[in-house]
Amino acid sequence: MVIRENFENNLLKIKSKVTEMGELSIASLEKAFNALKTQDVEIALKVIDEDADIDNLDMEINQLVIWLMAKEQPVARDLRVMIGVLKISSEIERIADFAVNIAKATIKIGKTNSLLSITHLEQMKEVSIQMLQKAMQSFMEENIVLAKEVSGLEDEVDKYNGETYKTLTNYLSEHPEETNQLVQLLFVNRYLERTADHITNIAESSAYLIKGKIYDFNS
């Protein structure tokens, strides 16, 4: 009984670190987009620097899970949860990388007449953050309903992605002098679309932990 209690406490500690990682990634996305919106290179550089904190948490989670697996030799659902934790932390790390990519795009754009207003990038960012919050809550509370809601929100991001791509490419053909900024905004559009994909993967992993069967929310 004591052994089981120790295992549960260690697993709770690991899940808490995954939650912290998710919160840092949300903050990184918010900060990166704010840098893009305000053309603030200093904020963009801070996003890049702070990514190390998320990478370190990812490594720490990996080490803790491996240690717990070796120590407790979990089976059945416990093993499923631990493998799921590794997958989810990996997805969060990739999401943070996309925030860094947005920050780098901001630096490349520099100070110029912003064309952000002709896009749906801010809406994509807002929906992506809502998705990540729901996916993380689903994971912590083992709530399958929240996991499934993420899929519907991803459809919104995909719609905004298509509309923004069309708008930017059309504008580019008419204003070749804005090539640098437009290309970077197209990259940001892609980064946010991929962010939503990775968040959906988190929701799928959460659903697997809860129900014990594989879900494909992208289909």
Rank of each mutant, 00 (worst) to 15 (best):
E91N: 13
L168K: 05
V85Q: 01
A32P: 08
N189S: 09
I102W: 00
F33L: 03
Q73I: 09
S16M: 15
A99N: 00
I109Y: 05
A105L: 01
L121M: 04
I144G: 09
V2S: 07
S117Y: 14
T179Q: 07
T195A: 11
I202V: 15
E177I: 04
G22C: 09
D49G: 10
I92R: 01
L132I: 08
V127L: 09
R94W: 05
E174K: 12
A70Y: 02
E174Y: 06
A196Q: 05
T169Q: 07
S114Q: 05
V2L: 11
I88A: 04
A96G: 10
I92Q: 04
S90W: 01
M124I: 05
M59V: 09
K159D: 13
G152Y: 06
K71T: 12
A99K: 01
E154C: 00
Q123Y: 09
N170R: 13
L115S: 11
I202H: 02
L146N: 07
L116D: 01
L132S: 04
T195E: 10
K17C: 10
S114N: 03
N10Y: 03
T167W: 06
D216H: 06
D197H: 11
I118Q: 05
S90Q: 03
I107L: 03
I199E: 04
I109S: 03
N62S: 00
I102K: 01
G22E: 12
R77H: 06
L121R: 08
D197G: 12
L45I: 13
N34F: 10
G212Q: 11
N10T: 14
I107C: 03
Q137N: 14
S205T: 12
T200D: 04
G110A: 04
H175F: 10
N180E: 14
L172R: 12
V85I: 10
E178D: 13
Y191F: 11
T119Q: 06
Q137R: 14
Q63C: 01
R190Y: 13
